[in-house]
Amino acid sequence: MAISDLKLPEGVTAHSFKNPAVLAEGLAIKVAGQLNDAIQAQGTATLVVSGGRSPVAFFQSLIKQPLDWSKVVVSLADERWVPVEHADSNAGLLKKHLLMGPAAKARFVGLYNVAANLEDAAEQADRALAELPPIDVLILGMGDDGHTASLFPNSPNLAEALTLDNPRRCWPMLAPTVPHQRLSMSRSLLASAKNKVLSISGQGKLNTLNDALGGTDIAALPIRAFLQPTLEIYWCP
C-alpha cells in the first residue's frame, strides 16, 4: 500500500517522502514558514510538538531554519509524568534536540510538574496551559495502536479528553507502555491549532492510518478525531 492509495476525507492532504531525513527537512521548512507568517501577522507564534524519538530529525532541521525564536512559544502535545532529567521526558528531549542554540530563546510551556499524584499534576498543567497563546502549528505523531498525543485507547479518561465541548486543556492519561502515567492536551485544545500536521513513517503506521480512515469509532483509534479538513499528513517508508 502507498499513501496515494488512502481514501482521505475532503480537505485532508498527504505528502510522501523517500526517507525520514527528507521528510524532516521538508516539514521543518514548512513549519518555519508557518511560524514566520504568524510572527509577521501577530508578533508571536506558538508551536506544539509531540515527543518520542521520531521527531528528533525534524527538531534538528527546524533549528537550522531562519526564525526569530525569541518570538516563539513552544509546548508539548503530551508528556510522560517523569522529571525532566529522566530519559523518557519529552521536555528533556526538547531541551536536548530543539531548545538549543538560537532556539534556546523560545519560551517553553511544559506539562510536567512535581505533584502528589497524576491527577494533581494534570490540574496544574491545565492551569499552566491557560496561559498558552492560540496554537499556530501543531505536529502530531501516531502509534501503531492509533493513539496520538497521549490519547490512548482504553485509557480511563479517554472519553472526557476526546469531548470537544469540555473546557479542560490537560488530562491525566494511562499508557499501555512504560512509563504508564502521562499528561495529554485535550482534543479540543489540540484541534484548535491553526495548522495541523500528522507526521508518521513506516508501513505499519500507514496500515493503522488506513484502518482509521475506514471507521468512525474514535475511542478505538483516537487518531480518527484529527482526520479532519486542513490536516496535512507527512509520511515516508
Rank of each mutant, 00 (worst) to 15 (best):
P156N: 10
V12F: 08
K30C: 05
A175E: 06
T208D: 08
E123Y: 10
S188T: 12
L98K: 08
V49T: 13
K105D: 13
W171C: 10
G214K: 12
S192G: 11
I135D: 00
P133G: 15
Q65D: 03
A225H: 03
G33D: 07
V48D: 01
A41G: 01
L183V: 12
L138K: 00
H15A: 07
D120S: 13
H147G: 03
R224Q: 13
L67E: 02
L76I: 02
L213E: 05
A14C: 13
I218L: 11
L47Y: 04
G52Y: 13
I63N: 00
V22K: 13
P167F: 08
M100S: 15
P237G: 07
L162W: 02
S4C: 09
A103I: 09
T44P: 03
S50M: 09
C236M: 03
D211Y: 02
M173N: 01
V114E: 14
C236H: 06
P83N: 05
L132N: 07
I135P: 00
A128F: 12
K196N: 15
T13F: 09
T177A: 14
V22Q: 15
A161I: 07
R169F: 02
T230H: 10
V73Q: 05
G214Y: 00
L158Q: 08
L158I: 15
L221P: 01
E131K: 09
T44Q: 14
P153Y: 13
I233R: 00
L189H: 02
D78R: 06
E131C: 03
W171G: 06
N19S: 12
S89H: 07
A116V: 11
A14Y: 10
Q40W: 04
D120N: 10
Y112G: 05
A125H: 00
L118V: 14
I29R: 14
G141S: 13
F226C: 02
Q228P: 03
C236I: 02
G215D: 14
P102C: 06
I139M: 15
P133F: 06
P153A: 11
D5C: 12
L190M: 14
Q34I: 08
V178D: 15
K7N: 14
D88Q: 09
P167S: 12
D217R: 08
P20D: 08
A103R: 00
A225T: 04
E160G: 10
A91R: 04
K205S: 09
L132T: 02
F58G: 07
S70E: 09
L140C: 10
P133M: 11
S150L: 11
C170P: 02
S192F: 11
A115L: 05
L35V: 06
A161C: 12
R187K: 14
P20T: 08
V74Y: 03
P66L: 04
S75C: 00
K205E: 12
I39P: 01
D144Y: 00
N166K: 05
E232C: 06
A219G: 07
P133I: 10
C236D: 11
S16T: 13
F58T: 03
K7M: 14
A175T: 06
Y234F: 15
W171M: 10
F152Q: 01
V56R: 15
V22H: 14
A24F: 11
V82T: 06
S192M: 09
Q60H: 08
R168P: 05
A191H: 07
A106N: 03
A225L: 04
S186H: 04
G11M: 12
